[in-house]
């Protein structure tokens, strides 16, 4: 490993605190994003199915 990279990853010896902090904060944000995306897609699909079933005119063009 190049010296510069090693030094960067070591974070002056504070790597066990710095990297988990970034992982936790950004990980939570990524997790909430994916969960919300999935929720939006699932609901969109189900709504489309139901409308097709009831042959009701959909509003269409919704944000996804």
């Amino acid at each position: 490993m190049p010296e510069g990279l090693r030094e960067f990853l070591a974070m002056g010896g504070y790597w066990p605190y710095v990297w988990p902090s970034f992982a936790i904060a950004l990980g939570i944000m990524l997790w909430l994003l994916l969960a919300s995306l999935g929720e939006a897609r699932r609901s969109q699909r189900l709504l489309a199915e139901l409308r097709a079933l009831r042959s009701e005119p959909g509003e269409g063009g919704d944000a996804t």
């Binding site: 919300s36 939006a40 609901s43 709504l47 409308r51 996804t64």
Partner: peptide
């Protein structure tokens, strides 16, 4: 961004509920 996404999903669930 994620708030808008979540509100969109919640609106869909309410429409689904209303349809049913």
């Amino acid at each position: 961004a994620v708030l808008l996404l979540r509100m969109h999903a919640e609106l869909n669930w309410r429409r689904i509920r209303a349809l049913r």
